[in-house]
Design a binder for these strands. Structure first.
Lengths: 277, 277
DNA sequence: TTGACAAATGACCGGTTAGTCATTATTATA
DNA sequence: TATAATAATGACTAACCGGTCATTTGTCAA
């Protein structure tokens, strides 16, 4: 139907300027020259409108990007076409891009969050498959490269969406290709491991986390028999985990004891996070 | 006063969870165990509260970061301390960091936008001075490195703020130091020029932009006498700029004519942007 | 011209909000 | 204890919101 398209277009203009929540249905219908009731003939609710917008544009953008990566035959051109394609899409659908970036972090309802996550993970999949194609399956810092690419995209998108300055997308893409290539070929200090990434995507429950921590503590108690203070601290922390025994001061002190051992940085973080210190 | 601090703390917890606009003054006062009226004895309005929060924490974080960069004597440690310090701050003030990131792109009022811009440009200054100290004044891709750093900070902050997974900040900082160093030492295809950066920070008026475009067009008309189609197109576009003459179809066609000349990519972007095509 | 059906309207509803202010409670002072 | 000054309250206002629905308008075929 025609009406639906009109509403989507005008609403997007307003959302880009003022944000979703700051824009009322009244305003949208005024901009369209229709009545408030007519809006609800096309959309069940204001939420359905933004959900439709996200689906409509993200399906477009995501599939375009996927085609680019899939159909570009020369491997050395893929990165360029990826960046150029992405920024072109953002340029073409700039009102949507502005809205999406603005509302990305605002979670109105469960369905909204799920949609954002879905398209984000689709993008991650596309980027990962691209990286694997260009640099091979076993690139050590694969996930870091992926996040670096996302970082570049975010920061530079922001720049050209929210400043009125005209951008040379070709030069931008070229510049980012070089940066990405440098990182992929030479970065040797990875941060994101497969395990960490899996945890981010599928957060473990508190109970599972506790089991994991206890396991590592047992390893440490066995492995660090030469440092009695650290060992004793681990034993006490293990007791505290199984049943809360100590006050925050003692727990903090025990954590300090183990933190200084260079083999215990990771477990210290795990404990700190689990105990919400 | 005590009350003020209490309100700021409790409000921040709620803002981090639900966002600023979704949190009512009622909710805040309930969380504090005070009446609604009491809120307005401490703050003139809800806006003043968030503005105070931003000032309080951003002054803290920004000055801490500045001290780190200033006081670290060994140049090869500055980058690490910068990243580590920044992520530590975000970890320490995670409720604030969450709120700030969520509301960054939402512009409630003029004062809010100004504040966000102010602290953002302070951060940029700190990063730039750090880069200059480490890599020298004349690093060609200085501004790109700065934006890359901002990109890394943003993406990884997001990751550790909005996932419950515990992070090894030491490893993260180390990894980002390596990436930044690689880019600074080897990136040779800059995107952000000083001129472009100045335009972003101090956008020119439409009139100034028009003058600049006309100037470049005159250059092109002189310099591209061998391609009569391109030349003719520029002459017509110049006429159209001085007084709108043609419909969108003709203008688009003229732009297409010049776009394909490899020397005209930049001016095509300028025109496209100015004419809002 | 009529009547049946669909499309469109906008007054209206219940709910929520930021912010106010007359009133009350608490504290300090004389 | 009496009085003045200050702190705190919460019912209240005015505005706005998303969403509804009885009513009107427009458009067909008969």
């Amino acid at each position: 139907m025609m009406k639906k398209q009109l509403i989507m277009e005008k609403a997007l203009e307003l959302f880009a300027m003022q944000g979703f929540e700051a824009t009322s249905v009244q305003q949208i219908t005024e901009q369209c020259g229709i009545s408030k009731g007519a809006f609800y003939l096309s959309f069940k609710s204001k939420d359905e409108l933004i959900l439709s917008l996200i689906d409509h544009f993200m399906m477009q953008i995501t599939s375009e990007l996927d085609c680019i990566v899939r159909d570009t035959e020369k491997t050395n051109e893929v990165l360029y076409k990826f960046y150029y394609g992405n920024f072109s899409s953002f340029y073409k659908y700039s009102d949507f891009a502005k809205t999406f970036i603005k509302e990305q972090t605002h979670s109105f309802n469960e369905e909204f969050i799920l949609k954002i996550h879905y398209y984000d993970s689709e993008l991650e999949k596309i980027i990962l498959s691209m990286i694997e194609r260009i640099y091979g399956e076993n690139l050590p810092a694969k996930l870091d490269i992926m996040y670096s690419i996302k970082g570049f995209m975010n920061t530079y998108s922001h720049l050209f969406l929210f400043s009125q300055v005209p951008f040379d997308l070709h030069q931008l893409a070229k510049s980012l290709v070089e940066k990405t290539d440098l990182l992929a070929k030479h970065a040797a200090v990875p941060f994101l491991t497969e395990e960490l990434y899996q945890n981010i995507k599928h957060p473990v429950t508190e109970e599972e986390q506790k089991e994991k921590i206890l396991e590592i503590i047992d390893q440490k108690i066995e492995g660090l028999k030469d440092d009695s203070i650290v060992q004793e601290s681990f034993i006490l922390l293990k007791k505290h985990l199984k049943e809360p025994t100590f006050g925050p001061a003692i727990v903090k002190g025990l954590l300090e004891n183990i933190r200084h051992n260079s083999h215990c940085k990771w477990i210290t973080y795990l404990l700190q996070s689990y105990l919400k210190m």
